[in-house]
Simulated assay, not measured.
Amino acid sequence: MVKEQGRTMVAQNKKARYDFHVEDTYEAGLVLTGTEVKSLRAGRASLVDGFVDIDADEAWLLGVHIPEYTQGTWTNHAARRRRKLLLHREQIDKIERRVSEKGLTVVPLALYFKDGRAKVEIALARGKKTWDKRHSIAERQANRETEQAVGRRLKGMGD
């Protein structure tokens, strides 16, 4: 059997980058059941309401929705259960110290398979204010307009 190579994206949390200023990112492994892995390989997951909690010196992923496997039997998993994250002790301690600061939280950014193993990219993030979100939208719009202008100029269409 050929071993899987590379990185296969399952789900991304684009809303997290809009709602938070990302300060630090970490890659963590996940403890999953068999039906969860099969459901992820089918490309089904949602990170929108997800967050990470440090409890008794262990990191837990909460609020992530991995739907039940359609061909699963009584061994199927609960869709929004707690899932343990696999991180080094130093990383967990560092995250716990930083979260104790005011305004920092840990959110999942992406869920993917790396060399056949399920991984989640988590980020230490600080919540954005409303004016920050408006600034992000304006910045994105300005970048889009400059790209369009450059494209028109390259095609010889002028302004």
Rank of each mutant, 00 (worst) to 15 (best):
L87F: 00
W131Q: 09
Q141C: 04
S100I: 06
V150Q: 15
K84V: 03
A45K: 03
K155E: 13
L109F: 09
L85T: 08
D55W: 12
D53Y: 10
R80H: 06
R7G: 01
R117F: 10
S100K: 14
L32I: 03
A45R: 03
Q5V: 15
R89H: 01
D132R: 12
E139K: 09
R82H: 14
N13H: 11
I92P: 13
F51P: 10
M157E: 15
R117C: 06
A56Q: 11
G158T: 02
L85E: 00
R82I: 04
R44P: 01
A11N: 03
H65A: 01
R83D: 03
K102P: 08
A149G: 15
A16P: 11
G29I: 00
R152H: 06
K128H: 05
K129M: 10
T8H: 15
M1E: 02
R117A: 05
K14D: 07
A78G: 04
E121H: 03
E145T: 07
K155I: 08
Q5E: 15
T105D: 13
E27A: 08
M157A: 07
T130Y: 12
Y69D: 09
L32G: 12
N76H: 08
L61H: 10
G6M: 08
V31C: 05
S39E: 13
P67H: 00
E58Q: 13
Q91D: 12
